[in-house]
């Protein structure tokens, strides 16, 4: 997904000489093509993320359209003060591209996982937060990012996801995409890792004769309130899915809208239960341990269904 994002960006990079790409020692392989086009606008700042963010700020203040890339905890958590003051407060034209949302970096361990980035980034004024749900969304986002006015945070999930969208999509930041319009149950997922899990869950429910609605909520901020209000009208169960702490992420954001809108149905956040990963393993293994694999999600929905019908 990152590969196609950078390939798409390369087309624009060739035409638009104001685009600069900064990265901090990691992801070198993604930038070979850009370097071939213009090595002066592709800068490896070394292992120095705080400096990267503010060099980007200085470039953006000089009229450049700047992208910064790294693994999320180093890009975001490490350089947060620079992001807060110089990018967000000054409302600069900078795109932060973060790799490894959730536990995508599996065996590399907790230092490389990211379970709190959505919460941090959506609480920054002026910041837009997007987690593309599949390859089509990543391509559309790469194009949209070029002319995007202001700070943008892109959270990449897993790279090798199937295309969820079979048709052409109408991608706009701030507007969720309804993958399937059904009834009663509504699954709202963000990012490629969770959207692909969500589609497995939805397929299984469909085989049982249910017709769940599935939404790719790629933009977590600004959140598509209109769509959520619409969904609230004809769904008795709304479930959010994210590979992020349940505190402060997609589920929190959607719940704020639902509660303020007076939603009377059942609502559940499915995400990482306020914990760092306590296990060692590859992403699939960790997702299972965190209860975020499609089977466990399905079981949780069944449990929710029981609660709805019998206990509430």
């Amino acid at each position: 997904m990152r590969k196609i994002f950078f390939q798409t960006l390369a087309e624009e990079f060739k035409k638009d000489k104001s685009i600069f790409m900064l990265f901090a020692d990691l992801g070198v392989k993604f930038f070979y093509d850009l370097k071939k086009i213009d090595p002066e606008r592709v800068i490896d700042v070394g292992v120095a993320e705080a400096n990267m963010i503010d060099v980007a700020s200085g470039l953006a203040m000089s009229g450049k359209n700047v992208y910064c890339y790294s693994i999320i905890p180093f890009l975001i958590d490490r350089a947060l003060d620079q992001i807060r003051v110089d990018i967000a407060y000054n409302n600069l034209n900078i795109k932060l591209l973060g790799a490894g949302g959730g536990v995508v970096y599996g065996l590399e361990g907790v230092t490389h996982h990211s379970v709190n980035d959505i919460a941090i980034m959506r609480s920054l004024p002026n910041m837009t937060v997007v987690a593309p749900g599949d390859v089509k969304e990543a391509i559309a986002l790469a194009k949209a990012s070029i002319g995007f006015p202001g700070p943008l945070y892109v959270r990449f999930g897993r790279d090798c996801e199937p295309e969820v969208h079979r048709e052409e999509i109408d991608f706009k930041t701030g507007k969720g995409i309804v993958v399937n319009k059904g009834k009663d149950i509504c699954l709202i997922a963000t990012g490629s890792t969770m959207l692909s899990a969500a589609i497995e869950v939805a397929d299984r429910l469909s085989k049982e004769g249910k017709n769940p609605t599935l939404v790719s909520m790629h933009t977590i901020k600004p959140l598509d309130r209109e769509l959520i209000f619409d969904l609230a009208k004809d769904h008795s169960q709304i479930i959010t899915l994210e590979d992020h702490n349940v505190i402060g992420g997609l589920g929190s954001a959607v719940s704020e809208v639902l509660l303020e809108g007076g939603y009377k149905g059942a609502f559940r956040r499915i995400g990482i239960p306020d914990t760092f990963s306590e296990h060692v393993g590859r992403p699939d293994y960790l997702m299972e341990k965190l209860g975020l694999d499609s089977k466990t999600i399905y079981d949780k929905l069944y449990f929710l269904d029981k609660l709805k019908n019998h206990d509430l």
Binding site: I43, V55, G58
Partner: peptide, 17 residues
């Protein structure tokens, strides 16, 4: 006001120049 930002920003401006 938050210290340690200026030299990096200045480096970005100088690089743009």
């Amino acid at each position: 006001g938050s210290l340690g930002h200026g030299l990096s920003i200045g480096s970005g401006m100088a690089l743009a120049g």
